[in-house]
């Protein structure tokens, strides 16, 4: 539990959500993720995501300061068109106020409208905040990945299946990675 004084004071309406707008957003995203994740990502990792799927990345601003971000991709994976949430970060003092939920919901909404059948991600089994957040959004813990992270911690593969009545795969043909598993190291640091 965070000490109350560590929390930022703000109204939910003061948070602005912005879709990724170009190279000027890149340093903001990188700074946030670098701050929270131990895993080193080179600038090319970020570019891969935000150049190919700019409409799936969002940033949250409070009075001009970037306080949260989500970075995603989508593509074919074993005959399934699926979305993948690679990184989700909210600055510690801003956690617990629904910013992460709003960010990730926006990405998922775009994925659903683009014809994704499901959305996946991995989260550390110890990251209770993230697990609760995704659980509320309808994700199930599909698998446990033994010692998935190099620090020896297991991960859960979380999955959200969209209802299937009208399959619509005619969404814009988007470039996809050679391997949807290629960057499964996105960690999810969210405390709600």
């Amino acid at each position: 539990m965070e000490a109350e004084e560590g929390k930022a004071e703000f109204e939910a309406s003061e948070i602005d959500y912005v879709s990724y707008g170009g190279e000027h957003h890149l340093p903001l995203i990188m700074k946030l993720v670098d701050q929270e994740l131990s895993e080193p990502y080179s600038i090319f990792t970020y570019r891969y995501f935000v150049y190919l799927w700019p409409h799936l990345s969002f940033l949250a601003f409070h009075k001009g300061k970037c306080v949260g971000t989500v970075v995603c991709k989508m593509g074919d994976h074993r005959h399934t068109f699926r979305g993948y949430i690679a990184m989700l970060v909210v600055l510690n003092p801003y956690r617990g106020r629904g910013i992460a939920t709003e960010l990730v919901s926006r990405s998922i909404q775009v994925m659903m409208e683009s014809g994704c059948e499901e959305v996946t991600l991995e989260a550390e089994v110890t990251n209770k905040g993230a697990l609760a957040l995704y659980g509320r959004l309808g994700f199930i813990r599909a698998k446990r990945l033994f010692r998935y992270y190099l620090n020896g911690v297991d991960a859960f593969r979380l999955k959200l299946l969209f209802p299937r009545p009208e399959p619509n795969y005619s969404g814009s043909a988007l470039p996809t990675g050679d391997d949807a598993q290629g960057l499964d190291e996105g960690k999810h640091y969210v405390v709600t």
């Binding site: 998922i108 959004l137 309808g138 999955k159 959200l160 299946l161 209802p163």
Partner: peptide, 16 residues
């Protein structure tokens, strides 16, 4: 209850 903005309990059942 299994309530979520994007799917229903049935999808959870199918996946599990």
């Amino acid at each position: 209850l299994c309530l979520g903005p994007f799917n229903t309990e049935q999808e959870r059942f199918i996946q599990h």
